[in-house]
């Protein structure tokens, strides 16, 4: 497995189990100890479900993805080389299970992102100069549940492939290379799409965040 991921969620409610605890659990799993799988679910299941809920539109989808991920982990334990943390490996498996589910559900043609990207005059200046965002709204963006809901809603409005990239890179903290591998595209394509996704999300939030009034949230 490429790279090393950090804690499954920075805001996780309990600290990550230590490396030693994870290694001990891995040993018990490999010996086929029945209770070890239950302990694995206790250790990582909640965080796996949180990842799936971030990535998938419904709770049913998220639960199915976690079940798929846990069974996939069980089936593939013998392939896990133990160089990464068990929680890191499970995070990656969960992300992959969510991507699989998104692919099987994707039926509509994707909407264009072009309207949400900045436009320029022939001399290279922006067509519409960017206005400053209000400091109090910026602060609320990180603390208020109402603003968090708005941001989640706007992330949900992104065209799906851009939303996926944003989630993998900015929310799940996969590296560019890990995201490229998970999505089967080049690292350069990940970078281009991530930049566009961030720009599009900025454009969607802009009316709500500008200091000149906008649509307060």
């Amino acid at each position: 497995m490429a790279g090393t991921l950090n804690c499954m969620t920075p805001a996780c409610p309990s600290p990550d189990p230590s490396q030693a605890e994870q290694a001990a659990l891995l040993g018990r799993l490999r010996q086929g100890e029945d209770a070890a799988f239950r302990d694995l679910m206790d250790m990582a299941g909640g965080r796996m479900l949180a990842v799936a809920r971030r990535m998938l539109p419904t709770d049913d989808d998220a639960r199915e993805a976690v079940q798929d991920a846990l069974l996939s982990a069980f089936r593939n334990l013998h392939r896990f080389d133990g160089r990464a943390l068990l929680t890191t490996w499970l995070h990656r498996i969960t992300v992959n299970a969510c991507l699989m589910k998104l692919r099987t559900r994707r039926r509509r043609p994707e909407s264009s992102i072009e309207d949400l990207l900045p436009t320029f005059l022939p001399d290279g200046h922006q067509t519409r100069p960017a206005e400053p965002w209000a400091p109090d709204r910026l602060e609320r963006a990180e603390t208020s549940e109402a603003t968090a809901r708005l941001v989640r809603e706007k992330i949900g409005e992104l065209p799906e492939t851009y939303r996926e990239i944003l989630l993998l890179r900015d929310i799940e903290d996969l590296s560019t290379e890990e995201a490229a591998q998970a999505l089967g595209i080049s690292s350069n394509a990940v970078k281009t799409k991530l930049h566009r996704a961030r720009q599009a999300l900025r454009a969607l939030l802009d009316p709500h965040m500008r200091a000149d009034g906008g649509e307060a949230c």
């Binding site: 969620t9 909640g46 965080r47 941001v151």
Partner: peptide, 12 residues
Amino acid sequence: AGKAAMRGPGTS
């Protein structure tokens, strides 16, 4: 804001 909204308190 994206990180805070998706990974903040109450999302785990």
